[in-house]
Computed example of a mutant assay.
Amino acid sequence: MDWFSLGKRRSKFGKFLDQNNITQQDIVKKSGVSRGTISRLCQPEHEEGPTMKNARKIIKAIKDITGKNIDYDDFWM
């Protein structure tokens, strides 16, 4: 586990990034979604999710980075 995530409450999305050693900056660079949006989505009170446009970019970035088959419902409802 990375030192920056210790003790922080995280959303499902944030926990996934932590568990897969993916930084928020990795997602920002790969997806083109703003740093503020990615940061907000990692906070537990924002589990409602991003816009569909940003969600598609984020999901594609995660698939490219991890090779895992994930979708919107894995993080947001």
Rank of each mutant, 00 (worst) to 15 (best):
M1S: 11
D2E: 12
D2A: 14
D2T: 14
D2M: 14
W3H: 11
W3N: 13
F4A: 14
F4R: 15
S5I: 03
L6P: 09
G7F: 07
K8L: 15
K8Q: 14
R9P: 04
R9T: 05
R9Q: 12
R10G: 03
R10E: 10
R10P: 09
G14E: 00
G14H: 00
G14M: 06
K15V: 11
K15L: 13
F16K: 04
L17Y: 00
L17E: 03
D18C: 12
D18L: 04
D18M: 00
Q19G: 11
Q19L: 13
Q19H: 10
N20R: 12
N20A: 06
N20E: 11
N20V: 06
N20Y: 02
N21L: 06
I22T: 09
I22Q: 02
T23E: 06
Q24R: 04
Q24P: 03
Q25N: 15
D26A: 14
D26R: 09
I27H: 01
V28T: 12
V28D: 05
K29E: 14
K29A: 04
K29I: 13
K30Y: 04
S31N: 04
G32H: 05
G32N: 07
G32A: 10
G32L: 10
V33M: 01
S34M: 08
R35D: 02
R35A: 06
R35L: 06
R35H: 09
G36V: 14
G36E: 14
T37C: 04
T37R: 06
I38D: 02
I38A: 10
S39A: 15
S39R: 10
S39Y: 08
S39K: 13
R40S: 12
C42K: 00
P44G: 08
P44C: 04
H46T: 06
H46C: 00
E48Q: 09
E48P: 09
E48T: 01
G49R: 05
T51W: 07
T51C: 04
T51D: 11
T51S: 15
K53S: 15
K53A: 15
N54K: 05
N54S: 15
N54L: 00
N54W: 01
A55N: 15
A55T: 15
A55E: 10
A55W: 02
R56Y: 07
R56L: 06
I58S: 02
I58R: 03
I58K: 05
I59C: 07
K60D: 08
K60V: 12
A61M: 04
A61R: 00
I62V: 06
I62T: 00
K63E: 08
K63V: 08
K63L: 05
K63D: 05
K63A: 06
D64C: 08
D64L: 14
D64Q: 11
I65V: 11
I65S: 09
T66R: 09
T66P: 02
G67H: 09
N69Q: 13
N69R: 05
N69I: 07
I70C: 13
D71F: 08
D71S: 15
Y72E: 04
Y72P: 01
D73M: 05
D73H: 13
D74F: 01
D74C: 03
D74E: 13
F75K: 07
F75Y: 08
F75G: 05
F75D: 08
W76Q: 13
M77G: 14
M77I: 10
M77P: 11
M77R: 15
